[in-house]
Amino acid sequence: MAETKVVRAVDGVSIEVRRGETFAIVGESGCGKSTLARLLMRLLEPTEGAIAFEGRDIAGIRGRDLRELRRDMQFVFQDPFSSLNPRMSVGKLVGEPIETHRPELSRMQRRAEVARLLRTVGLRPEHADRYPHEFSGGQRQRIGIARALASNPRLVIGDEPVSALDVSVQAQVVNLLHDLKSRFDMTLVIIAHDLAVIRHMSDRVAVMYLGQVVESGPTDEIFARPRHPYTMALLSAIPEAAHGRAKTRLALSGETPSPANPPSGCRFHTRCPFAREDCAARIPELRPAADETRVACHYWQEIAATRPSAGLTPADGRSEGAQRRFALYEAATQAPESKTATNAEA
């Protein structure tokens, strides 16, 4: 009889999210980042290991404890088109979590609360009577955020919260999340594949490959001095929106192997340009490297010595001329008479 295949989508991951920070989990398709997010949220239960939230293990809780957890921890989904019930008005959509988590509120209080939440995310109270299809992608994502905020969560987990949006709208939602985080003293966990968004939003980051964390640490440090070859390759693969900045690309051959049948030893060794013979045999542990970072690579020190400039150059690659125009644009959008001072997304 054939053996049942087990896919370890997340395998031996340890991360620590500090109160008040934005923690990012980054990786390409199939690295297990979304599964990890669902584990944190307790939408999935881990087969092994523990997840502690504010000191308490949440891995096996159920009933009232789980309901309370759902109040303190909320989720923002990637696709604003499929995560909102099209048959519910915005007022109902945002009112529902209020009803669940704060049943003591009267109907009038709830309606006032919906209005307050809509204003908080940059929508108007009268939007409560409309339905999801009447809104643009960015506005729908705002509705999703209002829903997440309804229970006054202390932790919000966003799984690719801006990747379905156009760039100009993406910036609106990135700024909104940033503002809400500081205004409500929240902790944010962002799962994303876009490294520029990650760099912009997060304080610390964990890089995942095939179900494991290969490198973690302060975002600025990881981007300036990536130590794991996969992080180097990932950073060097991103085309940058500035002209004439040729990068030395650390090209990876092939594609991510199937998580159902991961390579032996270091899971990255089949694609690693620095792989040596014993990488196929020995599993590297995630160990403290330097400057609060942790790296899972046997040879990171030697690799770093041969590639002193693996990180990104510190200066903004965009020309002075362009930056001057950006400043003019920014000043104009901030101007009081400008229609952008209030939310113009109608």
Binding site: S136, G137, G138, Q139, D166, V167, S168, V169, A171, Q172, V174, N175, H178, L195, A196, V197, R199, H200, M201, F223, L235, I238, E240, A241, A242, L312, T313, P314, A315, D316, G317, R318, F326, Y329, E330, T333, K339, T340, N343, A344, E345, A346
Partner: peptide, 17 residues
């Protein structure tokens, strides 16, 4: 567009849609 290099500043936006 958020950048990979340079200081992290608040992003400009194109208001509305």
């Amino acid at each position: 567009v958020p950048t990979l290099t340079g200081p992290r500043r608040r992003l400009s936006t194109v208001p509305g849609s």
